[in-house]
Amino acid sequence: MTTQDSVPGKGASQIVADARTTTPEITVGQARKELDQGHVSLLLDVREPAEWEKAHIPGAVLAPRGMLEWYADPTTPYAKPEITTKRDAYIIVACASGGRSMLAAQTLQSMGYTHVVSMAGGFNEWSKQGFPIEGIQER
Rank of each mutant, 00 (worst) to 15 (best):
M119N: 08
V16G: 05
T85C: 04
G98F: 04
G98K: 00
A79T: 07
W126V: 06
S97K: 07
Y113D: 08
K86C: 03
Q109I: 00
L108R: 03
L62F: 10
R139M: 10
D36C: 08
E34V: 05
G99V: 05
T114E: 03
E134R: 13
V116E: 07
V28A: 14
A63D: 10
T75N: 14
E51D: 13
W52G: 06
Q37S: 15
S118D: 01
Y113V: 08
A89M: 07
L35T: 06
V93N: 04
A120C: 04
A31I: 11
G130W: 06
Q109N: 02
I57D: 13
P74T: 06
C95K: 01
A55L: 14
K86S: 01
T27V: 06
W126R: 14
M111K: 02
K33G: 07
I136N: 07
G112M: 02
P77L: 01
L62A: 13
G66K: 11
L68C: 10
T3F: 08
E138D: 15
D88M: 01
M102K: 03
T85A: 15
H56Q: 08
D36L: 12
L43Y: 10
Q30P: 04
T2H: 05
I83M: 07
A79W: 10
E25V: 02
G98R: 01
A94F: 02
A50Y: 15
I26A: 01
I15V: 13
S118A: 00
A120T: 07
E134W: 06
P58A: 14
R139N: 14
